[in-house]
């Protein structure tokens, strides 16, 4: 399988992940739940719909979804768990990936603020705060990987070869993976940080920012969110299940893990979320220390 094929698989299969998480949650709750392919149906429906724009919004609102989608696609192109080189890989590309994801978020936040709605402003401010905390932790968790693999490109950091490192480095890898898993929960608005299924606007983070989007715009945002979930699941999968990450099986297993996590715990209070991110930061920092022998 070439890197490009893997990338195409990502684009095709990403909308499957939210469906899998939902299915796991329904099974745990004893419900049959919605179909695994629901997001595909939703995307197909949304792409055929028109959009309504409020008179109070400007081009910023319209530019948000395409910009977010484009940035997320670009970030995903840098990641290839298969071999040393993704389609766009270069030394130090992890920074570009982190900030492409940051840019996607920035576009959505700007679009939310552009509506002038108090709900969306509130969501935007929460998203900005939590992602500002999560970003350094994400970079910190990548440090041990760079050190162990000897290269600062995502492709080599998350390649299968990383587990052939010295046995003393392996605890650092596990700590990194744990930190990245927590960050992926925060970045992808999953329980315990955010509840993607709630209807309560006052408690939402990500969902409340996209309340005013509809039609193709909403499809772009939903698809970008699925790709981002794929990105983080792939990152965690390549560390925890290196042999399986080559196939999408490992990534799907991570989604199942997220589904289980959501099934057995409640959402944190919003003011406790920084503590969770701090925990991820502590794990990542410990990983860094272990590498500094």
């Amino acid at each position: 399988m070439s890197a490009s094929l893997h990338l195409i698989l990502a684009f095709v299969l990403a909308p499957l992940l939210p469906g899998i998480i939902g299915k796991v949650k329904s099974c745990c709750a004893g419900r049959s739940g919605k179909p695994v392919l629901q997001l595909y149906f939703d995307l197909a429906k949304l792409l055929r719909k028109g959009a309504v724009y409020s008179r109070g919004t400007s081009w910023v609102f319209k530019a948000g979804p395409p910009a977010a989608l484009a940035a997320t696609i670009a970030a995903l192109c840098l990641l290839s768990p298969l071999d040393q080189n993704g389609p766009l890989s270069f030394e130090g590309d992890f920074l570009l990936a982190a900030y492409l994801l940051g840019m996607a978020r920035f576009a959505v936040i700007l679009a939310a603020l552009d509506t002038g709605s108090s709900f969306e402003g509130m969501g935007a401010s929460r998203e900005a705060v939590f992602s500002a905390l999560a970003e350094p932790v994400f970079l910190l968790a990548l440090m041990p990987l760079g050190r162990i693999s000897g290269s600062f490109s995502l492709a080599s950091m998350f390649s299968v070869h990383i587990w052939s490192a010295q046995s003393l480095d392996k605890p650092a890898l596990i700590l990194s993976a744990a930190g990245l898993f927590l960050i992926s929960l925060a970045e992808n608005c999953r329980i315990p940080v955010d509840d993607p299924n709630t209807h309560l606007e006052l408690t939402m983070i990500h969902e409340v920012m996209v309340l005013d989007h509809c039609g193709v715009d909403l499809a772009f945002i939903e698809y970008a969110a699925a790709l981002k979930l794929w990105f983080f699941s792939a990152v965690v999968a390549s560390l925890l299940l290196p042999s399986m990450a080559v196939t999408p099986g490992g990534i799907i297993l991570v989604a199942v893990g997220i589904g289980f996590t959501e099934s057995i715990m409640a959402r944190l209070r919003l003011i406790s979320v920084p503590r969770l991110i701090c925990l991820a930061g502590a794990l990542a920092a410990l990983g860094c220390l272990l590498c500094l022998r």
């Binding site: 949650k25 745990c28 004893g30 509840d195 299924n197 709630t198 099934s263 959402r267």
Partner: peptide, 12 residues
């Protein structure tokens, strides 16, 4: 109450 906290077992 459990549903609002996103805690599924009790809610269901």
């Amino acid at each position: 109450l459990a549903g609002d906290m996103g805690y599924l077992p009790t809610a269901s």
